[in-house]
Design a protein around this nucleic acid. Structure first.
Lengths: 108, 108
DNA sequence: GAATCTTATCGTATATTTACGATAAAGGAT
DNA sequence: ATCCTTTATCGTAAATATACGATAAGATTC
């Protein structure tokens, strides 16, 4: 049985879904919010802010990194994370195109 | 072992994550796009547009309905789906607050 | 070099997601 | 009433996601 059919959609649909998935867990939403507020943040500081173990937070960071929303820069023994402006702009554009559609009244 | 800790975040973080999850599969993105374009759409027409079986599409519709983004109205033997304007406005507001943050340069 | 600190990765358990066919349920047509 | 159409739900299989502790890997310090 085919398990996933995600490839059979348009690149735009796939990308929006990837970005949506990145924001589909409260921990990842919280991480992005934190990075928006602080601009940059060492991994350990992120771990302190979340009710999750270090390894779990590391896993969430990896997912955000994979989708491109954040970048990590090695800073001695630490890793400093921040939002990638390019991908952020891309995400804004995608969701912007989505939500520029006004729905006034329920059609059915 | 605790499997999920999603409750331990703020209501806003949880809600954004729910809406993100709704858009985390290309099929659901495609369904929303279709409803944006056509205003309303009978279930069968949605199934025809997607490379998925009827039961799988029905499952995706249920998820979108659960999060509130769409409504289904029984129309004889058919079900007519459309976007719920209230939840749509809520989603726009949530993601708008997110993306109003400008990231100019990489902080690290 | 040894000890320490920080973060990523591995191993693992459990829950959830995705997908389909089969079937049920409900309305319309003959 | 019977058949057909349409959609939701059930059952099920396989892939992913979530979470943690343990361990590895890399840098700094002693």
């Amino acid at each position: 049985m085919a398990y996933t059919k995600k490839e059979e959609f348009t690149p735009q649909e796939i990308r929006v879904a990837q970005l949506g998935k990145a924001l589909s867990h409260p921990a990842r939403v919280a991480i992005i919010k934190l990075l928006l507020k602080r601009q940059e943040c060492v991994c350990g500081a992120i771990v302190e802010e979340l009710p999750l173990s270090q390894s779990t937070v590391s896993q969430h960071l990896k997912e955000l990194k994979t989708v491109g929303l954040i970048k990590g820069e090695i800073d001695g023994p630490r890793v400093c994370y921040c939002i990638d402006p390019k991908v952020w702009a891309e995400a804004r554009k995608h969701f912007g195109l989505f939500f520029e559609n006004d729905i006034i009244t329920k059609a059915c």
